[in-house]
């Protein structure tokens, strides 16, 4: 009798151990998963492509990726039916961006606006990440050089090649707040070697703000605004404001937008925008991006 009782207790005890052991596998798994999850993870896809609307986003193309972009702006909608609400007119920039590393990309382009060539590089200095030693923002630096090749307005005076050149230095501070919402700030400094009037400033400062909100997995709405600081503003210009949509299909991104800017390089866009939204000086436009993977990605 006594033995039976102890045996029962023992079996009970044994079953308890069995039960603890049965949980073991899942417990060990949880521990292992924890170790892996603590690893630093970079945030990706803050924006769909390297341009928000006219200006840059914080995004780069990946290493060995070539992104051909055709940006097209029609004329002003308020030009009326004679110009078919701007559709008779066109301003185009054709350009290519290439990823040298995942953090460094270079690009060139040619715009019909003032027959401008531009070249830039975009370097990621910080990358937003989660996990150990996480970083809350992504920070990029983008210097651009633009060359205006229109004939000189006054050929009789002595003209210098350097007069055609302007420089832009831009920082982009971006954060992906959730899988659908991203915002960025773009402080920008522009230097023009030659300006039209003696009263016009050569050095200009602007602060840009932009963001995107995803509407579906493949469509987002974007807003981009560049505010010229009053002290360093180009006279008789307006601030650039654009609203647009990104539509993604496989290797393409289509961007459709409304903007008051004709130019598509930073210097034209930020300091030479003439349109006024309130007067209906709005241009419809689109960007088409197609990526090609050239090199094999090595990790």
């Amino acid at each position: 009798m006594r033995f039976k009782k102890t045996l029962l207790i023992t079996i009970h005890f044994f079953l308890m151990i069995l039960k603890i052991s049965a949980q073991d596998t899942s417990d060990i798994m949880k521990e292992l998963e924890k170790e892996i999850q603590q690893k630093k993870e970079f945030v990706t896809a803050t924006f769909k492509t390297t341009r928000l609307i006219n200006g840059h986003t914080v995004e780069n193309v990946g290493k060995g990726v070539l992104d051909i972009k055709i940006s097209h702006r029609f004329g002003q909608i308020n030009e009326g039916s004679y110009e078919l609400f701007g559709l008779d007119e066109a301003t185009i920039r054709i350009g290519g961006d290439f990823g040298i590393t995942n953090n460094l990309m270079v690009g060139i382009g040619r715009s019909t606006f003032q027959k401008t060539y531009d070249a830039f590089f975009k370097l990621k200095l910080l990358r937003q990440s989660s996990g150990n030693n996480s970083v809350p923002i992504t920070l990029s630096y983008i210097p651009t050089i633009a060359l205006k090749t229109l004939k000189f307005e006054d050929p009789s005076r002595k003209n210098y090649f350097s007069s055609r050149i302007s420089y832009t230095h831009q920082l982009i501070i971006a954060r992906k707040f959730s899988k659908n919402t991203s915002l960025q700030l773009m402080p920008t400094y522009i230097h023009k070697n030659l300006v039209l009037l003696a009263a016009d400033p050569n050095n200009l400062f602007a602060l840009g703000i932009g963001g995107r909100q995803k509407l579906t997995k493949r469509v987002s709405i974007n807003v981009e605004y560049y505010y010229q600081l009053p002290k360093y503003k180009m006279p008789n210009t307006t601030n650039s404001l654009s609203i647009g949509f990104d539509i993604e299909t496989g290797g393409h991104v289509f961007q459709l937008h409304f903007t008051n800017s004709k130019g598509m390089t930073e210097k034209n866009l930020i300091t030479e925008t003439a349109g006024d939204w309130a007067k209906g000086d709005i241009l419809f436009g689109f960007n088409i991006s197609r990526v090609f993977t050239i090199g094999n990605r090595s990790k």
Binding site: A45, G62, V65, N102, K179, T293, R297
Partner: peptide, 15 residues
């Protein structure tokens, strides 16, 4: 997961 094309990896994770 690592893909040959960077965009594939992005689409895999996002979409």
């Amino acid at each position: 997961f690592r893909f040959r094309k960077a965009l594939m990896e992005e689409h895999f994770n996002e979409n």
